[in-house]
């Protein structure tokens, strides 16, 4: 249940950020184009795949170094998913360097924003836990 909740939180953040980035991307690179409803489904699919990739957590306990490696792997997976899907959906041309760079930059920006949101959520939880910890210790 907790994992599903975490995944929904990530999905919500990713979808919101991807929507903003898509709006910006279309404004810059495809200002004249007429888009169909399929772009909305494409955004939802890409966001979902990215959320799944970023919610995969090892069952066994891992060291901090391993955790960092997993983080880097997630970033690589996110890049692969967005670039793969983007290419398939015709969001960019592989031989158009500014488009590819903009995609990579967008992926990096969304990854940082979502990571920061998850970190902030952890911070809020920790603040609440510290409050309760003080109450717990003052009872002794």
């Amino acid at each position: 249940m907790k994992r599903l909740k975490d995944m929904l939180f990530i999905y919500m953040c990713v979808t919101t950020c991807v929507l903003f980035v898509t709006a910006l991307y279309i404004t810059v690179f495809w200002p004249q184009v007429q888009l169909g409803v399929e772009i909305l489904w494409q955004i939802l699919v890409v966001s979902f795949l990215c959320s799944v990739a970023n919610c995969i957590v090892p069952h066994r306990e891992v060291s901090a170094r391993m955790m960092l490696a997993i983080y880097i792997l997630r970033y690589a997976a996110t890049n692969a998913i967005v670039l793969g899907c983007g290419f398939r959906f015709g969001w960019f041309y592989a031989d158009n360097l500014p488009m590819v760079l903009a995609m990579l930059l967008s992926i990096g920006a969304v990854f940082v924003i979502v990571s920061a949101a998850a970190w902030r959520q952890g911070k809020q939880q920790a603040a609440l836990m510290n409050e309760r910890l003080q109450a717990y210790q003052s009872k002794e």
Partner: peptide, 23 residues
């Protein structure tokens, strides 16, 4: 607190978030 650790809560000063849902 983990597979290899048992912690005395009375001796914890504070908690902070770590990577990926850990504290």
């Amino acid at each position: 607190a983990s597979k290899s650790c048992i912690v005395n809560l009375a001796k914890v000063k504070s908690l902070s978030p770590a990577f990926n849902g850990r504290f």
